[in-house]
Computed example of a mutant assay.
Amino acid sequence: MEKLPERPDTPCVAVCSTTFDEICRGCGRSVVEVAHWVSMTAEQKETVWVRILSQGYPRRNT
């Protein structure tokens, strides 16, 4: 199995907003991903990390 990259514990940047849609404007995760983050496997988290980084997240100043 390939070693996963080292990442922070969470992509959260304390700019939480899902007012108009299901995606947080700060970290780029869906509401479901945020809710289940602590129970996700390392591989599931890495999948999310790859997607949000490719989309320009996390954003500290939104």
Rank of each mutant, 00 (worst) to 15 (best):
M1W: 06
M1A: 14
M1E: 01
M1L: 13
E2Y: 11
E2R: 15
K3A: 05
L4E: 03
L4V: 13
P5W: 03
E6A: 12
E6I: 10
E6M: 08
E6R: 10
E6T: 11
E6L: 11
R7M: 07
R7F: 09
R7S: 04
P8H: 02
P8N: 08
P8D: 09
P8A: 07
D9P: 10
D9C: 01
D9S: 13
T10E: 12
P11K: 04
P11H: 04
P11S: 04
P11Y: 05
C12S: 03
V13R: 02
A14V: 14
A14F: 13
A14I: 13
V15H: 04
V15S: 09
C16V: 13
C16W: 11
C16A: 14
C16S: 08
S17N: 15
T18S: 08
T18H: 08
T18R: 14
T18A: 13
T19P: 05
T19D: 14
F20H: 03
F20C: 01
D21A: 03
D21N: 14
I23M: 09
C24H: 00
C24D: 14
C24V: 09
R25A: 03
R25T: 10
R25H: 04
R25W: 00
G26R: 06
G26T: 02
C27H: 00
C27T: 06
G28K: 03
G28V: 03
R29T: 00
R29W: 11
S30P: 05
V31C: 04
V31A: 13
V31S: 11
V31T: 13
V32K: 15
V32R: 14
E33F: 02
E33Y: 00
E33K: 01
E33A: 06
V34C: 07
A35F: 08
A35Y: 12
H36Y: 09
W37Y: 11
V38K: 15
V38N: 10
V38Q: 10
V38W: 07
V38T: 06
V38G: 00
S39Y: 09
S39L: 12
M40Y: 11
M40N: 05
M40I: 03
M40Q: 12
T41P: 05
T41I: 10
T41L: 02
T41D: 06
A42E: 14
A42I: 01
E43N: 01
E43F: 00
Q44M: 11
Q44D: 12
Q44V: 07
K45R: 15
K45C: 01
E46N: 15
E46K: 01
E46D: 15
T47P: 01
T47H: 06
T47S: 14
T47I: 07
V48A: 09
W49Q: 08
W49K: 03
V50P: 04
R51G: 01
I52D: 02
I52G: 01
I52V: 12
I52Y: 05
I52R: 02
I52H: 03
L53R: 15
L53T: 12
L53G: 08
L53K: 14
S54I: 06
S54V: 02
Q55N: 13
G56Y: 08
Y57R: 05
Y57F: 15
P58A: 08
R59P: 02
R59E: 02
R59F: 00
R60V: 12
R60L: 10
T62Q: 06
T62E: 00
T62M: 03
